[in-house]
């Protein structure tokens, strides 16, 4: 057991780093869905936009200022984009999931294609900030410092999102809206503004995740759909509309993608969707689904 642990500790650590990034990406998707019933398939395109923003600001010679600048701009643009998406989905509030999914899929295609026109089809890499771009020795293995830092950032953001949702007035409204949307508007709260705020925060987090993920994943066409699928799996496994579910889902998928691929090397291509199918067959509402989302 000890030797097994010793051999795989780095993979477990790596799963934590990937899980942290996935949490930052997926929490917005989960809240938007839980609250507004909108399945936002443009979420991956926002991540990719963040990655390209990182490439634009940081490129291959990273400085702290440019990295921080990229994060700040990503948050602002992301919030605006989220507000825009909120307005765009407003007329579809009483339509099916399918219509919203198609609309956001259309937005995703347009955004991804515009990015490819702007930045070309070559793979672009993004450097980590100075001091974090090297490697260190953890548990006897070389490990990139930046990924360790990512675990810390993920933990910080998880606490921050938790505080906002559990301790602030906005959080209260969000939780109330997840539980019963009609009741919130009946109480005289402008539900649309709450929705825009949640959409904005979720999208800002997605773009920030894109900048943060840049040094690991780079920026290239096609990355948007890959991360979108990961985020969807996280959200569905964790249960929709729950911050805690998104966190657990992200950590589970981080391990599935990391440790799972080590242990089941021959089935590496199947583990992600296998895990998703298994969870949905056993627990159709996800691991932490608060209630059945049977509305179509």
């Amino acid at each position: 057991m000890l030797t097994w642990l010793d051999a795989n500790l780095v993979s477990i650590l790596n799963g934590l780093a990937i899980g942290s990034l996935l949490f930052i990406l997926a929490v917005g998707l989960s809240l938007v869905f839980g609250m507004m019933d909108v399945l936002n398939l443009a979420h991956g395109a926002l991540f990719l936009a963040g990655a390209y923003l990182g490439h634009l600001f940081v490129g291959q010679q990273a400085g702290w200022a440019s990295f921080a600048g990229a994060l700040g701009v990503a948050a602002v643009i992301g919030a605006l984009a989220g507000g825009g998406l909120s307005v765009m989905t407003e007329p579809l509030a009483h339509r099916s999931h399918l219509d919203q999914a198609l609309l956001t899929l259309g937005v995703a295609l347009v955004v991804a294609e515009l990015l490819s026109i702007a930045f070309g089809n070559d793979v672009q890499s993004v450097a980590a900030p100075p001091g974090l771009d090297g490697s260190t020795v953890v548990l006897g293995s070389t490990y990139p410092v930046y990924r360790l830092v990512l675990i810390g950032i993920g933990a910080l953001l998880a606490v921050a999102v938790h505080v906002v949702i559990e301790r602030t007035r906005l959080g209260l409204l969000v939780r109330a809206a997840v539980a019963d949307r009609e009741m919130v508007s009946a109480l005289g709260v402008d539900e649309r503004r709450v929705k825009a705020a949640v959409f904005g925060i979720g999208s800002a987090l997605a773009m920030v995740a894109g900048v943060l993920g840049g040094p690991i994943y780079g920026a290239r066409p096609g990355l948007d759909s890959t991360v979108l699928i990961l985020a969807l799996v996280v959200v569905v496994i964790g249960g929709l509309g729950s911050v805690r579910g998104a966190l657990i889902g992200a950590l589970v998928i981080g391990q599935v993608e990391s440790l799972g691929r080590v242990l089941l090397a021959d089935l590496a291509s199947f583990v992600l969707f296998g895990a998703l199918a298994l969870v949905l067959v056993l627990r159709p509402q996800g691991l932490f689904g608060a209630r059945a989302q049977a509305r179509t």
Binding site: N8, S11, S141, T226, E257, A265, A268, S269
Partner: peptide, 21 residues
């Protein structure tokens, strides 16, 4: 030997661990 999932592998750490060991 190892085969990585085509087109969906972003993170090669699990496979790199296999090479090292």
């Amino acid at each position: 030997e190892a085969r990585t999932p085509f087109g969906t592998t972003q993170d090669f750490q699990p496979f790199l661990a296999g090479i090292r060991s």
